[in-house]
Design a protein around this nucleic acid. Sequence first.
DNA 1: ATGGTAGCACGGCTA
Length: 254
Amino acid sequence: MRVVTWNVNSLKARAEHVARYLEEKSPDVLCLQELKLTDEAVPREIFTDRGYHVESHGQKQWNGVLIASKTPLEGVQRGLPDADEGQSRLIAATTGGLRIVNLYVPQGQDTESPKYQYKLRFLAALERWLHENASPSDPLVVLGDINIAPGPDDVWSVEEWEGKPTFTAEEHAALERILDFGLEDVTRSFFEPGTFTFWDYRRLSFQKRRGIRIDLHLTTGCVTQRVVEAWVDRDERKKEKPSDHAPVGILLSR
DNA sequence: ATGGTAGCACGGCTA
């Protein structure tokens, strides 16, 4: 079973890429972030025409998350109640025996911005939500654009990133508390240092290999045991009109 | 160095 996360930076702009990706790679579960579409505007045929079930939590212009799966999606939850401040950044569903929590964590802009405080509030609310809505004994995959690079191997330059959103001590502490729920950054052990998932559109970042690893799969123990492979589909970043993020996947045994 | 690029929606925000 393959579970993939991909920040598409507008599903409207990336519709053909996503359709082709489903045909070429046929993941069992595909989680998307940054739809930038309302639920009504989501092109559901991309998924249903290819045999996928699909559930979305959209928003006009910004944010928006979606889960597509070959098996039915049950127990769908949308949003972080009283915490996401109206922004569509979480959708959860059970499929194929897994509880999937698909996230688009706020980026934070800069540490002086109110958006950074919102990011920290969101992360604290996520921690509470996990304790209230899930158990570490569940087969749980918390994945998505987490917008935190967990460690020094996950940024192209620590000097460049130290103290900036995605790489502050406060965010690392918040991620640590989320992991303390009983989750593991499971792709870490499969990737060489310098394996990235996002490259800024600006300054030829991809060509210069100036990326960061912020698209993560966090798994509970019973899922961690089943992960036999992990990968980044870097080729997607080389296409015409790519997203600034590449798809990231895990393969589970059984 | 305060740029650079892309998407949404059509001026400026967000990433």
